[in-house]
């Protein structure tokens, strides 16, 4: 297990091309843990019978068949999903930043893919929303392998470009999500915190649970430079600034912490789970923390 987790550091994952493979590898370590807690669907549409194997829940034994045949069969239904989850992936230009081997978008995509894989494995319906300046693509949640393949394909094609406007995107999404659904926002949240919180608030008002995963490059949290820099905004190249990084590092860090604190408090106030992720951190940790959040929800 340890060896697998070591393998799944962000740098190694970045070298894998297909998200499907990535998702499987990332989620593989967590499948056994999820086994006992797989979600039970409430559908009554009969699908098929299968022989009982030790360990199956006796609740699903078809006693009538037993009476007739003296053998144990389990009755299976078409759909056991009880959660509709939408992964919201920020694809603004700022997500293309990388100070190491993996961009924030790639990291977020990998993470989202693994989550989708896990959720579907639990028979939850999973959808995807790509968030740029507006809601650019939306795949409604479904608990099918085809849908999952569509989600992977959309994420593979996603390019980090355009400006962030999470408020607008979340507002658009709020009109589409069902009450009681789960929305997982994966973004660097480098936008006005009030706008971000406003968008989250709309989702909450719609009755959706929200989990906010903030993905940041380690460099973004502070200005790790010892010289003068000419910084150009990734999302708006017309904004440029010549600054002495040594002089402004402190202010920048303060500013960043304030921003994060504001987001954290806003999320807390809206009963939204908030998690800040670092692109240098291994996926295993990140996914572990996510599942911890999920278990809290249940």
């Amino acid at each position: 297990m340890t060896e697998l987790r070591d393998f799944l550091d962000p740098g190694s994952v970045a070298q894998l091309e297909r998200l499907q493979v990535v998702a499987r590898k990332i989620a593989a370590g967590f499948l056994r843990g999820l086994h006992r807690s797989s979600a039970r669907g409430s559908s009554i549409e009969y699908a098929e019978h299968r022989p009982y194997v030790p360990g199956d829940d006796l609740k699903h034994l078809d006693w009538r068949s037993y009476a007739r045949t003296d053998r144990f069969y389990l009755k299976q239904f078409e759909d056991e999903t009880n959660l509709r989850a939408t992964l919201v992936l920020d694809t603004s230009a700022s997500m293309s930043f990388s100070s190491g081997e993996i961009t924030k978008l790639r990291y977020a995509s990998c993470l989202a893919a693994a989550m989708a894989y896990l959720l579907l494995g639990q028979r939850d319906a999973v959808g995807l929303a790509l968030a740029g300046e507006s809601l650019e693509q939306h795949i409604p949640p479904r608990a099918s392998a085809e849908n999952l393949a569509g989600i992977y394909g959309a994420m593979e094609k996603a390019r980090a470009e355009g400006r962030t406007d999470l408020s607008k995107v979340l507002s658009q999404l709020a009109e589409r999500v069902d009450p009681g659904s789960l929305t997982i926002l994966i973004s660097d949240l480098l936008d006005d915190e009030q706008k971000v919180l406003s968008g989250i608030s709309q989702l909450r008002q719609r009755g959706s649970e929200v989990i906010v995963l903030q993905v940041l490059d380690p460099c973004e949290k502070e200005l790790p430079f010892n010289s003068w820099m000419v910084l150009r905004d990734i999302e708006d190249p017309s904004i440029e600034m010549r600054l002495d990084a040594r002089q402004l590092a402190e202010l920048y860090r303060e500013n960043f912490i304030e921003h994060q604190e504001a987001i954290r408090k806003g999320c807390s106030a809206a009963e939204v789970d908030y998690l800040c992720l670092d692109t240098s951190a291994p996926f295993a940790n990140t996914l572990g923390r996510f599942l911890h959040l999920r278990s809290r929800q249940r």
């Binding site: 230009a93 930043f97 003068w228 000419v230 990734i234």
Partner: peptide, 9 residues
């Protein structure tokens, strides 16, 4: 000064 694209500027 070194030039760099920066996401949070």
């Amino acid at each position: 000064a070194r030039r760099m694209d920066w996401p949070a500027l």
